[in-house]
Amino acid sequence: MTTPLTVEQLKPRLGRLTLIDVRSPGEYAGGHIPGALNIPLDQLDRALPALRAAAGKNELAVVCAAGPRSRSACRQLADAGVTALVVTGGTNAWTEAGHPVDRIAGARPVWAMDRQVRLTAGSIVLLGLLVDLALRGARWVSAAIGGGLVFSALSNSCAMAALLGKLPYNRPRPGTPTLDATLATLATLDR
């Protein structure tokens, strides 16, 4: 079980805890909570040693767009023996509360990954059904996407999100800290 932290509880603690943003680099560049360090969820395993060391120095909190990825990250961290708080409502709740975000210069806002997945999955399902009108059997593509979404929900993983995360607009933009730079920053944090 992860310990929730509301954005109102987070605000006065910024600078006193280590905040990890597990969204894609493109999402992070488009707007993140001030002081948050970007470690994409799919890179969390690589960052575990640095996160374990950082958690020994400061309290660790994890944020994403709305909460699901940060809860998943906190479960991964807990399985590795690292305690972390999860920011309830994520960056969306932060901005809805009127708090400022930092942006990487020149970055445009990118849709949250769950929104990208819904658009892609819905488009493939609809296209499969439409193509089936002319080419019998194409509806099975739609069925496969539906099955993939069910598996995604049951396993709390998403292959489509992993693939979408590799698209150019979700990758690091010039000026976005690399994972290696973030890990180096974590290594220099003091209590």
Rank of each mutant, 00 (worst) to 15 (best):
R118H: 09
G89N: 10
D79H: 15
A55I: 02
V150Y: 05
I39E: 09
C158I: 15
R75T: 15
Y28E: 08
P49V: 13
S155G: 15
H32I: 13
L129H: 03
S142F: 08
S155I: 12
P34F: 00
V131D: 02
N38G: 08
P40K: 10
R69Q: 01
A61Q: 04
M113Q: 01
Q76H: 11
V117W: 06
G122N: 00
L77Q: 07
A143Y: 11
S70M: 01
R69V: 00
D132W: 03
W94D: 05
I145Q: 04
T91P: 05
D42L: 14
A55M: 00
V87Y: 10
W94A: 04
A144S: 04
W94Y: 07
A66P: 10
A107K: 05
A143I: 12
Q116V: 08
V150Q: 09
E96F: 03
A121I: 00
W140M: 12
V62Y: 00
S123V: 04
I39F: 05
A61H: 02
R23K: 07
S123L: 11
R139I: 12
P34W: 00
S155A: 14
V141D: 15
L85N: 04
R75Y: 13
R108I: 15
P109L: 07
V117F: 06
A93K: 03
G81D: 03
C158Y: 14
A138Q: 02
V125H: 05
G56S: 03
T95N: 09
E27T: 06
G146M: 01
L133S: 04
A134T: 14
L77A: 08
S155L: 14
C158N: 15
I33H: 08
L129C: 07
P100T: 11
G30D: 15
P40N: 10
D21C: 01
L85M: 07
G147E: 05
A61N: 05
A159I: 00
P49I: 11
A78L: 14
V125P: 09
A55T: 02
A105G: 13
V131I: 03
L135T: 01
G89E: 11
L60G: 03
T88A: 08
C64F: 04
V141Q: 10
S157Q: 06
L17G: 01
G56M: 02
I104K: 02
V86Y: 03
G15L: 01
L85Q: 07
A29Q: 13
V86C: 12
S24K: 03
T18I: 06
V63C: 13
A153H: 14
S24M: 06
G56N: 02
E27N: 04
R75F: 10
R71G: 12
I145P: 06
G31V: 03
A84G: 10
R69H: 01
A134F: 10
R103H: 12
F151S: 15
V63E: 10
D132M: 02
S24Q: 08
R46M: 11
Q76T: 15
